Simulated assay, not measured.
Amino acid sequence: MSDPLSCPEFLQNPYPFYDELRAAAPVQQVKTGSGGRPSYLVTGYAEAKAAFGEPGLSKDTARFFAGRSSGRNLHPAVAHTMLATDPPEHTRLRRLVTKAFTTGAVTRLRPYIQHTVDRLLDALPKDGEADLVAGLAIPLPVTVICQMLGVPEADRAQVRTWSNDLFAAGQPQRIDTASHAVAGYMTGLIEDKRRAPDGSLLYDLIAAREDGEQLGEDELVSLAVLLLVAGHETTTNFIGNAVLALLQHPELLDRARTQPGRLSSMLHELLRYDSPVGIATFRYTTRPITVGETEIPAGVPVLISPGAANRDPAQYPAPDRPDAERDARVHLAFGHGIHRCLGAPLALAEAEIALRALLIRFPALRLAVAAEELRWRRTRLMRGLESLRVFTR
Rank of each mutant, 00 (worst) to 15 (best):
A242P: 02
T235N: 06
G231V: 02
Q248C: 14
L227T: 01
L244K: 06
P250Q: 14
L247T: 01
A230V: 06
D211I: 11
T236F: 03
H232W: 13
F238T: 08
F238H: 06
V229D: 05
T236A: 11
E219A: 07
L223E: 09
V225L: 08
G240K: 03
H249Y: 10
N237E: 12
S222H: 07
N241E: 10
S222R: 07
T234I: 08
D254P: 03
I239V: 14
L220S: 09
A245F: 07
I239T: 02
L223Y: 05
V229Y: 03
G212L: 12
E213K: 12
Q214N: 08
V229I: 15
H232S: 00
L252G: 07
R209M: 00
S222A: 15
E213L: 12
R209E: 15
V229E: 02
R209D: 14
G216K: 11
L223H: 06
G231P: 04
Q214E: 13
T236W: 09
S222D: 10
L247S: 01
L215F: 12
F238W: 05
A242S: 15
E217Q: 12
A242M: 01
T234N: 09
V221D: 08
A245P: 03
L246I: 10
E251D: 15
N241H: 09
L247A: 01
F238I: 03
A224R: 00
L244F: 00
D254E: 15
A245R: 08
D254H: 12
T235E: 04
L226Y: 09
P250E: 14
E217K: 10
A242V: 08
I239C: 09
Q214D: 13
E210D: 15
A224S: 15
L227K: 07
N241C: 12
L226T: 11
A242L: 11
Q248F: 04
V229L: 05
V225P: 05
V229W: 04
L244W: 01
A230H: 00
I239Q: 04
E219C: 10
L215I: 08
Q214P: 00
I239N: 00
L228F: 12
P250S: 14
V221Y: 02
T236L: 14
E213D: 12
S222Y: 01
Q248M: 13
L247W: 07
D211Y: 10
A224L: 01
V221R: 05
G240P: 06
E217F: 09
E251H: 15
V225T: 06
T234V: 12
N241R: 05
L253N: 07
A245G: 05
G212N: 13
V221C: 00
L227D: 03
E213M: 12
Q248S: 14
Q214L: 11
V243I: 15
F238G: 01
Q248T: 14
N241G: 09
V225S: 02
G212T: 13
F238N: 03
L253C: 13
E217A: 12
E210H: 14
E233R: 00
E233K: 06
L244V: 09
A230R: 05
Q214F: 11
E210W: 10
L244C: 00
L244A: 03
V229N: 02
E233W: 03
